[in-house]
Nucleic acid binder design. Structure first.
Lengths: 347, 347
DNA sequence: CTGTTAGCGCCTTCAT
DNA sequence: ATGAAGGCGCTAACAG
């Protein structure tokens, strides 16, 4: 009837006794520290295995006694999504402080690779862990690798640098996100056929490029009746996005779908609204902000592909902490999922 | 440039010195224990406030030294969703054990209120916390309240008993889930008009009733062209669901949408498949299991409204732990969101 | 290579 | 009503 899920609580001392060694030796083996005869190592490991011993994290944390410092390197400037992440970090203040953790925000120009790289280099040695919203560029990659080599734990946040040796990426699979966007546009357009417009910040941004890739994949394979137009590059700016889209709308009468890959949402919505076709065109974009929430409620936007900024903030902290403590990462828990948000399931 | 998010790490001793009292007194004030003069209480509280002091959780946990026991009361029988929750709890074994927590599974007939109530009563006094998949019934409510009165922390899981004094509910908003289902059926049906069928386990189950309510809300207000048929009650059984739906399909030619509220998915899919109309009818159901995953990939199901079982398992444990420790609950983190899952964003 | 020992910060008797 | 002191389980010097 009742099946228990955990072993009984032994301590280091028990293992020491069972293996016929001292506390210190068990501790050494536990942390793979040198200075123990291979034979002793084996004996101790066996005792640990046999009892499936787990050191008490609270005791370890207390004994180690060191406060840990983490830095979050984030874009300067008013990006609502990034501001949400910062706000959620702020909400964790008590949680952090009860664990003697500190997190510091470092604002930088993440779109300029040399500035970003310099910001990262400047952190070297001062932090136990760094989370960074990264641009995928060789210079940035080198800076990340230098941090890693210096013993700092590094996680990329929202935007990855897969070729670097960062310990972990906290963010969504952007190709899958693009596919989800494509599926939504296609399904919501329904029987109609026509053209589909894409507005992105820049195809040079890795995440944007990946989203577009996924989007086109689905369009090509599943919705042959829809014709994807060349990508408009609005640099994530409202004005530019608006102008480009307005011009396109005025020339193409048979646009039935619109995918906004990045920011500049205000401009995109304006162009669409001014054209008077916001009810006919299926409009899918990214992230739930004050603006996109309003657009969804008004029926201008039909769906938003979103990543949960609170989850990303907390996952980044937890992953850095687990890495610093040498604990395993709960991959399933830290995975950032792609949420499809429509008017009726707005969070 | 760098803005820090945490206070410096003081200790109880620092507060004691500053307030001119001993460690023990600060500790008493911190935990609202009796035996301290009101005046002293004030002085100590001020010192705590002034420094925004946070006791170190690791030290507290270690000193308290007591292992904590939690029980999970879950439906007996082969419910894939519940099995997933159990599996995720199993994956937490190391995490639990490193914190000297144990969780025990208690299988019971959650659909029989007297059996369920008896199972709950039997736990009294033995556990620090109980998570229960609850039936909303006066007898169950009383059993929950008794546990709470006995000092046990209680969270309802997946299915709530709002009228009880449970400390927390870990699960989705089922009305919102029904609305999301309605919006999807309506939007995916597109321009067509016709009839929409609903298959539920029973309208007596609170979560099913709520989902149906939300579904009908959206249908009535947003999709007047769609006509919702009376609910078929399949008792979450494959056979019965199949028969009822097969009969309905044979009589109604113009069914364009289908909402499966609970389990019995296998039967629903079979009836739909046998009718040869699985590609024309928009089919939305709940939860991502091996079966629904397959149906989504085959294009039989169009979308699944899902709650993340891993998240629910971990949230239940974290909430029970926070309650037991007297820590605040991170509401935002523990909130269970409604996920819309389509073929292209299958997790 | 291995063992001994003094804390880490808090909680809990036990005295006063 | 308040204080003193030991100990929770582990880590990190320091001896040997």
């Amino acid at each position: 009837m009742a099946e228990t899920l955990t072993a009984t609580a032994l301590t280091l001392k028990d293992i020491a006794r069972e293996a016929g060694v001292s506390l210190a030796t068990v501790d050494r083996v536990l942390h793979n520290r040198p200075g123990v005869r291979p034979d002793t190592v084996r004996r101790v490991k066996e005792a640990i295995e046999r009892n499936s011993f787990q050191p008490h994290v609270a005791a370890a944390e207390l004994a180690r006694g060191r406060a840990r410092r983490f830095a979050f390197v984030m874009p300067s400037g008013p990006n609502p999504f990034m501001q949400q992440i910062e706000a959620y970090l702020g909400e964790m203040a008590a949680w952090l402080s009860a664990r003697r953790l500190s997190v510091e925000m470092v604002a930088t120009d993440v779109f300029d690779h040399s500035v970003l790289a310099a910001s990262l280099e400047a952190l070297s040695g001062d932090y136990d862990g760094v989370a960074v919203v990264a641009l995928d560029h060789p210079g940035v990659r080198a800076a990340i690798n230098d941090l890693v080599d210096a013993g700092t734990r590094v996680v990329t946040l929202v935007s990855d640098v897969p070729s670097s040796r960062r310990h972990h990426y906290v963010g969504i699979d952007n190709i899958a996100a693009g596919r989800a966007a494509g599926a939504l546009v296609g399904r919501l357009v329904g029987q109609r056929s026509g053209k589909v417009a894409i507005v992105a910040g820049s195809q040079g941004l890795r995440d944007h490029a990946e989203r577009i890739f996924g989007f086109n994949q689905v369009m090509a394979s599943e919705f042959p009746g829809l014709d994807v137009l060349p990508v408009l590059e609005g640099r994530d700016e409202d004005d530019r996005s608006e102008q480009l889209l307005a011009r396109l709308l005025s020339r193409q009468a048979d646009i039935v779908g619109l995918y906004n890959v990045g920011a500049g949402t205000q401009g995109v919505a304006k162009a669409l609204g001014d054209s008077g076709r916001d009810k006919q065109v299926v409009f899918v974009g990214h992230d739930v902000t004050a603006l996109t929430r309003r657009l969804l409620l008004q029926g201008v936007m039909d769906a938003a592909i979103s990543q949960n900024p609170g989850h990303e903030a907390r996952a980044a902290v937890r992953v850095l902490l687990a890495l610093a403590r040498g604990e395993p990462i709960l991959r399933e828990q830290e995975k950032i999922r792609i949420d499809i948000v429509m008017r009726d399931n707005l969070p």
